[in-house]
Design a binder for these strands. Structure first.
Lengths: 214, 214
DNA sequence: TGTACATCAGTGAACGCGCGTTCACTGATGTAC
DNA sequence: TGTACATCAGTGAACGCGCGTTCACTGATGTAC
């Protein structure tokens, strides 16, 4: 109807963002090409002028997600130099991201991605890996600075870090917001911190205790 | 055809188990009433003799899952009396469960459950909560026995425990089995253990350090 | 112990809905001369 | 600067597929007399 034309590049961005917002507000189930199109005042078929198909839109969402995750890392790096504090802030930002875009976790595990062709899964995997890589880098910088234990393997810690809110996020999601995600994040952080912080105020016990039950 | 009759109770169990196995082997996408029925030599419509619809089958799967999770708890309790060792073994069993029934995690976050009516989500939530409740009980018994720190809140620790493999499981899933889940579980456990173990071999530092950044 | 009837699991055809995708078109925008 | 043509975003109708579900039926199993 009265929809004015836009060049493809601008539309692509607009469509991807609309799709992400749709997921955020309504969940994966509502991610239909008809819904996406309607959301920006287009007719479903118009979407095919800019994307090969629904799959391509999902790819665009993944890229948006990658950008958001890495932006969080960049932000906490700018805010403080203390690696432990960087991790703590990143955790809170991550929780906020998950709360805002509830459904993102579901998208990643949905048929659109996890149940799709290997190429698609690889794309999602690479996004997660890029994020983990940055987290691990923070951990390593903490080890270098002597505030994080050396015997806590950085990659392992990064995955744990991710898991710290992931299970909470799922519970939060299932409970319909009842489960106190932010509280879990805060108290989880305290416990987590304890597991990686360097104990320079005592004997070098960390190493011995950690190797005890391999 | 030559399919012999069975009473409903037996069929119900058979159908639920077939559905679970289907998810295990092929993922949520393959969870179609046609596929389930074919898997046990029935015609799709026959399934409606025993279940009100597909939703009811999903409910049955959830119950099966609850049983498997609680069975793991019971098993580790029988194997050892040491709470820390119980947790470690439970973790390994959990990893095994997830590897065997890959797709269970996806089922929980799929449209069939997470995207469904609140009643359905509550059912899944209650399964997870029951499991978490048992894990927290183990943690508390560890605190009572003095092998787990008292200032690590049991419920928080339980959620962390769940998250310890959950993020790993997702990575494992996305990478198509490439990501070393069991290795992650083992090294993750070492770090996690460090965060909850009571430090009776030094001063009572744990309390002070943990409260530092609330 | 045999006959008659009710119950109930299994069948197969068909329906219907949701949804992604296609296609011939229209009308606006930008460009060459 | 105006005209003619190519390009391209947006339209709406229609298609087609997958899949859950319904329904009238058949034939076996179990039970009452």
């Amino acid at each position: 109807m009265g929809t004015e034309k836009m060049n493809t590049e601008a539309r692509r961005r607009q469509i991807a963002e609309a799709a992400l917002e749709l997921i955020a507000r309504q969940g994966v189930k509502e991610l239909r090409v008809a819904a996406i199109a309607r959301h920006i005042g287009l007719v479903p078929s118009a979407l095919y002028r800019h994307f090969r198909g629904k799959d391509a839109v999902v790819d665009a969402i993944l890229e948006l997600l990658r950008a958001r995750l890495l932006a969080n890392v960049a932000a906490v790096r700018a805010e403080t130099d203390d690696p432990l504090e960087q991790l703590r802030r990143l955790l809170l930002r991550h929780v906020e991201l998950i709360c805002t875009y509830q459904g993102i976790l579901r998208l990643i595990l949905s048929d659109e991605i996890a149940g799709a062709a290997p190429i698609r899964r690889r794309a999602a995997y690479s996004v997660l890996q890029a994020y983990l890589h940055e987290v691990a880098a923070i951990v390593r910088s903490g080890q270098k600075a002597g505030v994080i234990r050396h015997n806590a393997e950085a990659d392992t810690v990064a995955v744990m870090f991710l898991g710290l809110i992931q299970s909470g996020a799922i519970l939060w999601h299932m409970s319909g917001g009842l489960f106190g995600l932010e509280k879990q994040a805060r108290s989880g952080w305290r416990v987590f911190r304890e597991s990686i912080v360097a104990r320079d105020d005592g004997a070098r016990r960390g190493k011995k205790a950690a190797g005890r039950d391999t």
